[in-house]
């Protein structure tokens, strides 16, 4: 189990911190208003749903799988919440999370029962969810007028502490607890490390995979509700760019795509880094299309720095 190159590993471990400081200093010097209270709060708002989705994605990537449906799931669950808002008020969020979790259950069931690789299952589900979301919203945004649902993102539950900060923090703490303190969490590392060995050691690998996909779906659902509430509407394709950002955040944080290495706290740094970079690109006046290109390049670089090639006999 001894690592082949310690210096390389240490570099990878501290890379997110170094990059975060470098990027922050860069943008801080370039734009004096970058760290103004207003912009920092903006940053946190933008970061909130990415943080939630990335936490769910961490469960999946730790196992060495991937969930490509999170972006479409965010849109789909957001629509469900927006549609049910007038009836259930803030409780529509529960239905949004439930819808997301059911999508996750479907993903997981297809991966373990039909035995199709997770990237392909979730890619297909992504297409289906895009279709379903467009059908539900009839291809045009659904505005949210319900006070309760709007307060889900804009309100405060704990004194003056805004919900957009509170919810991601809760999700991070819960994820950290599950992954580091429970048998389920440890089995995720085992599955990611060596699935065959984990299977032979008597762990119910298929069930653990199913649970991980449900968690990823539920977090995507929660993020969808939060985003819809924040935008005051559920819009077509609103979660589209979350997929790339979430994978990039998880991987750049230090969770390896090959599975078995990483954790939720590393993802936190990855998310902050991605959010600072994307906010910085906003300051530079880059268009969404250009930001998309940059995110894609960042993702390839992050994956290429942080993947355990020795674990893959060959790379498909």
């Amino acid at each position: 189990m001894a690592s082949t190159s310690n210096t390389n590993n240490r570099l990878v471990k501290y890379l997110p911190f170094i990059l975060l400081i470098a990027v922050s200093v860069f943008f801080g010097i370039l734009y004096p208003t970058f760290f103004s209270i207003k912009n920092v709060f903006n940053l946190i708002r933008q970061m909130s749903f990415l943080m939630i989705v990335s936490m769910g994605m961490t469960f999946i990537i730790l196992m060495g799988s991937i969930d490509a449906s999170v972006g479409a799931n965010v849109t789909f669950s957001g629509v469900i919440a927006a549609l049910l808002g007038p009836v259930f008020g803030v409780w529509a969020v529960l239905f949004g999370v439930l819808a997301g979790a059911l999508v996750g259950l479907l993903n997981g069931a297809l991966v373990i029962k039909v035995k199709v690789p997770s990237f392909l299952v979730t890619l297909a589900i992504m297409g289906a969810l895009d279709g379903a979301a467009l059908l539900l919203m009839n291809s045009s945004p659904i505005n949210i007028h319900d006070e309760g649902l709007l307060n889900f993102s804009n309100g405060t539950l704990l004194g003056n502490f805004p919900n957009v900060c509170l919810i991601p923090i809760i999700i991070v703490l819960v994820s950290y607890f599950i992954i580091s303190q429970t048998a389920f969490g440890r089995s995720l590392y085992a599955i990611g490390g060596n699935e065959q060995a984990t299977l032979y050691s008597g762990i119910n690998v298929r069930f653990m995979q199913l649970i991980a996909f449900v968690i990823s779906g539920a977090t995507a659902g929660l993020a969808g509700c939060l985003q819809a509430s924040m935008f005051e509407a559920a819009c077509p394709y609103m979660g589209e760019d979350i997929l790339m950002n979430a994978i990039a955040a998880v991987v750049i944080g230090g969770t390896q795509l090959s599975g078995g290495v990483g954790g939720p706290l590393r993802t936190v740094f990855g998310v902050v880094l991605i959010a600072v970079i994307s906010s910085g690109m906003n300051f530079m006046g880059l268009e969404p299309a250009t930001r998309q290109i940059v995110t894609g390049i960042i993702m390839i670089l992050a994956v290429s720095v942080n993947i355990d090639r020795s674990k893959m006999a060959y790379v498909k």
């Binding site: 994978i247 299309a289 250009t290 930001r291 998309q292 993702m299 994956v303 090639r309």
Partner: peptide
């Protein structure tokens, strides 16, 4: 080239380049 030289899984590389190429076209 990316798949062969960086030794990365093709699905993740082409997922990223899909967004990159589409971004170029939109830009």
């Amino acid at each position: 080239l990316i798949v062969a030289f960086l030794k990365l899984p093709s699905f993740i590389v082409t997922l990223a380049t899909w967004f990159i190429y589409a971004g170029i076209a939109i830009a």
